[in-house]
Computed example of a mutant assay.
Amino acid sequence: MAKKFKRSYKFAIKTSLYITLFLSVVLAGFAYFTSGFLTGPFFAFIFITYLVCFFIIQYRVEHFIYKRIKKIYDNVSLLDSTTLQPSQVTTDMATLTREVEKFTKDKKLEIETLKVREAYRKEFMGNVSHELKTPLFTVQGYILTLLDGAMKDKAVRKKYLQRASKGVERLIYIVRDLDMITKLEAGDLHLEEEDFNIVELVQGSFDLLEMKAAKKNITLTFDIEYEEPIWVNADRDRIQQVLTNLIVNSIKYGKEDGTTEVSIENLIKNKVIVRVTDNGEGIEKENLPRVFERFYRVDKSGSRKEGGSGLGLSIVKHIIEAHNEKIYVESVFGVGSEFSFTLEKSKDLPEINTEI
């Protein structure tokens, strides 16, 4: 309280005292030279003078400071001056200092965030440009070659048209995936949730990708033999897409003669967790936080020999989040990776037997 009083009135008290002392000396000198006497009314006059000076100075200083601080609030637009009270300014000037410091910190954080977003935007635009221009230039090259005279050779014409068609298919694939991500982010993609057997769905994904895995002699397998069905509630087609993308990814970056293993485990009472594990090349630690970004590739060489749109993991993340579920990634470089996601159990889901 004493500190607050000192901050509020120190200037007014001292200034009033100086003025009162000056008037007292002047009045005393006048009385002395005019043979007057310092009587009771003289001291009353001194006291009243001090009080009047104090209140006038306090009011004027308070008004003076308030007007200028309010102008700072208005000009900088960092605070709402309509809620500013004079007492807030004059009784504790540290309030403004704290709020300005807070404003500065917030703006600094905002600027840093904008810089990160700008860097991400530039990288994203560069990736989009790279992904699109490769098939576009390929298609353009084949068509120009045909127009320059190669069209007359039937064998060349057919081969070039087939290659141009593959380039167009890749463009359609990229645009379709981008459209899906946009719909997922905007909440425009409707999920048709139903009860289905996740074990059967995984086995279906294995069957679809068996030939692709055979090219690298990669074994697609469960961690154990699931004799009973495991029922979950989700959009079957979208979860099929999630499993396909994750298994394709494990094959793409897996080692020759490797293994892709899927396990389904109880997580909590109403959840299961599906794990897709491989013993491939793994992901370096610094790349893990970005694996779900659009077009982000761990392979910095920019090679497209493995195909794909570069949007697979981003789509996986958005589909799982659209189900209000979680997706996780763990990896040790040179050892392998594990992608896992949660799903809601069906109401009549049997207990999962995790014993071999």
Rank of each mutant, 00 (worst) to 15 (best):
A119R: 11
E101C: 08
F103V: 05
I65G: 00
I46W: 01
K122G: 01
F55C: 01
K67C: 04
V139H: 08
P86E: 04
T39I: 07
M93F: 12
T83S: 08
K107L: 14
H130Y: 14
T39A: 08
L96S: 06
A94F: 14
Y142L: 14
F45L: 15
K102S: 15
V89G: 08
L132Q: 04
I56L: 10
T49K: 02
S129Y: 07
P86V: 02
G141R: 09
E101K: 12
R98T: 15
V139R: 12
G36I: 07
L144F: 14
T138P: 07
E118Q: 07
D106W: 07
F37A: 15
Q88C: 00
A31D: 06
E112K: 09
K67D: 12
K67Y: 07
R60I: 13
G126D: 04
I48K: 03
G126W: 00
T134C: 08
I57L: 07
F64L: 10
D80N: 15
E131W: 04
V128E: 00
T91W: 06
A31Y: 06
T34Y: 02
K133V: 08
D80C: 00
Q88R: 08
L114W: 10
F124Q: 01
I65W: 11
R121F: 06
T97D: 10
L96C: 00
Y66S: 03
T49Q: 06
L144I: 13
L136P: 03
E118S: 15
I72D: 08
S87V: 10
K105F: 11
E112C: 03
K70T: 12
L132M: 15
A119P: 03
A31I: 02
F55H: 06
D106I: 07
F64D: 10
V116G: 01
G141I: 01
K108S: 11
T49F: 05
S35K: 11
V128L: 13
V116A: 11
F124C: 01
D74Y: 00
Q140G: 11
M93V: 14
S129M: 07
S81G: 03
R60W: 03
E112A: 14
F37K: 15
F42T: 04
N75G: 05
V100M: 06
R98I: 12
N75F: 03
L132C: 02
Y142I: 13
R117F: 05
T39K: 10
D92W: 03
A119M: 11
K115C: 01
Q88E: 14
Y73S: 02
Y32T: 05
E110C: 03
K107H: 09
H63K: 12
Q88K: 01
S35N: 12
T34L: 04
T90E: 04
K122D: 13
T83K: 14
Y66R: 00
F37P: 01
L79D: 14
L109G: 11
R121V: 02
C53D: 04
I57R: 01
I57Q: 00
T113L: 09
E99K: 13
T82F: 02
F137P: 11
T97F: 12
E110D: 12
G36R: 04
V100H: 01
Q58P: 01
E101L: 11
V76K: 10
E62F: 12
I69H: 06
V76W: 07
E62A: 11
T49S: 15
I56E: 02
A44D: 10
V100C: 06
P135K: 12
A94Y: 13
T39R: 08
